[in-house]
Design a protein around this nucleic acid. Structure first.
Length: 220
DNA sequence: AATACGGGGAA
DNA sequence: TTCCCAGTATT
């Protein structure tokens, strides 16, 4: 198992950022100036959904529902329909509908504290982190299945089954994204996990940081 | 801690 | 056909 030291984390970050400059992916929610609404919708579409699939339906969703006001007019059934190709449409539409109601009551203004944000419908730990990172510019991790896999392969496995309650992954993820440009390192990690450190057949021979990776040392 | 939700796309 | 996906809420 790779020891987790300041130096090993710096090496990990440097390797990923270098790779990211050349190989980083390009998604509609990453480029240009986005409204808070547009960023939140992207994160909702991305839940348990491949980024490419979400990217495909993102423009359609935004064209139909461009802002909180328009979303506020949508019926739950209509949201189900537009979310159908993404899957999880019944639950997702229900929660998004609740959020639209909540935002109507709040006149489009989000709360500012972490605790209040996490109380919003469809806002779990992941989206709350995304909100902090993308909108409040905090050094918060997009700790999803991708980042978890990469961190676990490189630094060692978690203890708990659920990412959100595993203290090891929680602390490690915050350490890893604690740099001046937290968006870059977050996106670098997600892209690397998707393209190189893949869930099924990780491309270890093309991995530029494999010498520090505990999975590589033990398996290849 | 386990489970339901889910269609699309790749292997 | 199977596996996996920028999770969340309920039990």
């Amino acid at each position: 198992m790779a020891s987790i030291t300041t130096n090993s984390i710096k090496y990990f970050q440097k390797g990923l950022l270098t790779w990211f400059e050349i190989n980083g992916r390009d998604f509609p929610w990453r480029k240009g100036k986005k409204t808070v609404y547009q960023l939140i919708i992207a994160e909702i579409l991305l839940q348990r959904t491949k980024a490419e699939t979400a990217a495909k339906y993102y423009p359609i969703f935004l064209k139909t529902y461009p802002n909180w006001k328009k979303l506020g007019y949508a019926k739950e059934r209509e949201l189900q329909e537009i979310l159908k190709p993404l899957g999880l449409q019944v639950q997702r539409a229900n929660r998004l509908f609740k959020l639209s109601r909540e935002m109507k009551d709040r006149k489009g203004r989000f709360p500012t504290t972490r605790n209040e944000i996490e109380q919003l419908p469809i806002f779990g730990q992941y989206i709350a982190n995304a909100y902090e990172l993308l909108i409040q510019n905090k050094k918060s991790p997009l700790l999803d299945v991708n980042m978890s896999r990469l961190l676990e392969r490189y630094f060692g496995k978690r203890n708990m089954s659920d990412i959100r309650y595993d203290p090891y992954l929680q602390e490690l993820s915050y350490q890893v994204v604690n740099i001046d440009n937290p968006k870059s390192i977050n996106w670098a990690i997600l892209d690397y996990a998707q393209l190189v450190c893949k869930s099924r057949k990780p491309v270890c021979h093309n991995c530029s940081i494999n010498t520090g990776c505990s999975y590589y040392k033990n398996n290849v």
